[in-house]
Design a protein around this nucleic acid. Structure first.
Lengths: 210, 210
DNA sequence: AAAAGTTGGTGACTAAAGTTACAATTACAA
DNA sequence: TTGTAATTGTAACTTTAGTCACCAACTTTT
């Protein structure tokens, strides 16, 4: 049993031996370093990326304005790439690694085939769609009915959860883009959160959640 | 060939004869009159509604505040009911008929079964998820980066498209709820659009798009 | 037809967040 | 280390939209 098979089995315990074998055979493993763009709006998607290790940030871009849609973690795939991939459409999103990551790229033809052949594979994507859609409904409600301060707090807590650390090395500018607002607004609010003893800002541009 | 089979064949030309037969056999057709709630947040979903005729409005409700997620038209189904249905979860949405409508209710067990057995059935739901997700990304960008006036215009044009008429019988209060804003704001803006000769407001609460 | 409820119109006010403009600080490279 | 670029801080201002208060018009109920 190769290392890849072992890893795939760990990450996808609900996949059958056969499916794992096929994925290992046709998938292309790639190590990608932090802050690398793996997909941009408009790209043709011929291979579906699935995350083995690392974190990937998925953005929508609308008239030059970014907005964070979701993070991809280990064992997850990007539903927007999935749909672009199986329908031969162009990518509607931009994906950037947020840590050194390992992906496995699955050829779109095989993805379509596995979708028919393996129920567990099929189910995974329905599940991802569902999660992402519910998530989107929440995001939408937050944008509509909550003020930015709460959205910022939510963002900080969520980022801590995803990254697994309370010390977030992230620029104000980036936070602003992720939330679809202006840098000044974030600087102001972070100062306020500091005053309220919810965070501290260490030197080196690190936001520490208390 | 029964009337139902004929109708199903029209609405779902990509479904096989067998699938159509099964749907006709196990589906329950319901005629539902305008403004009827067919599903509320928290309901158990044991039957998946698929629209044969009519229009259905699907809402999310967040702390008493409604927000229009999408309209369902003929040949469409509600992905949120779908996911609730196949995973035995409770509904996260509220659905209300916007015209006298005909639905066919599919038992969740059969839905799960058809999903495996019929590729065309499986594909339909992936397609719906995809459409709805892309739609959501757009909505999100509009909320974040456009002012309410534009969002209102978009809403009016979209409603005209869905309803197939330029004379929309809709209350200001309802428009406000759909867009997640306040009634006064809508009244003010509709007056402005009237001044700008983009709409007129007829008596009886009808908004006519020019 | 009078009363009660619903809907729409509007001015005045408030709050929130986006913008401008620039200063201060920190990081980085020559 | 010194100059340059990137990042952060902040005050003042503007804009947008949400809120309040109230009235008028229209509808429905009694």
């Amino acid at each position: 049993m190769t290392e890849l098979v072992i890893k795939l089995t760990q990450k996808f315990p609900f996949f059958s031996k056969n499916l794992i074998q096929e994925i290992a055979k046709y998938g292309v493993v790639k190590n990608i370093e932090n802050k690398t763009t793996i997909l941009t709006t408009g790209d043709n998607v011929r291979m579906l990326p699935v995350v083995l290790d690392g974190i990937i940030k998925v953005y929508s871009i609308y008239e030059d304005k970014e907005f964070l849609l979701y993070y991809l973690k280990s064992s997850e795939s990007c539903i927007m790439s999935f749909s672009a991939c199986i329908e031969n459409k162009k990518s509607e999103i931009t994906a950037i690694t947020e840590s050194d990551s390992t992906l496995i790229l699955l050829p779109s033809e095989k993805v379509k085939f596995w979708l028919k052949k393996y129920e567990s594979f099929n189910k995974l994507f329905f599940k991802l769609y569902d999660q992402r859609y519910l998530d989107m409904i929440n995001t939408l409600n937050h944008i509509l009915f909550e003020n930015i301060e709460n959205r910022l707090l939510r963002y900080l807590y969520e980022t801590r959860r995803i990254k697994g650390t309370s010390e977030l090395a992230i620029k104000h500018r980036e936070v602003a883009e992720d939330l679809g607002t202006a840098r000044e607004v974030i600087s102001r609010l972070l100062k306020k959160l500091e005053k309220d003893k919810i965070i501290t800002q260490l030197k080196g541009g690190i936001i520490k959640i208390l």
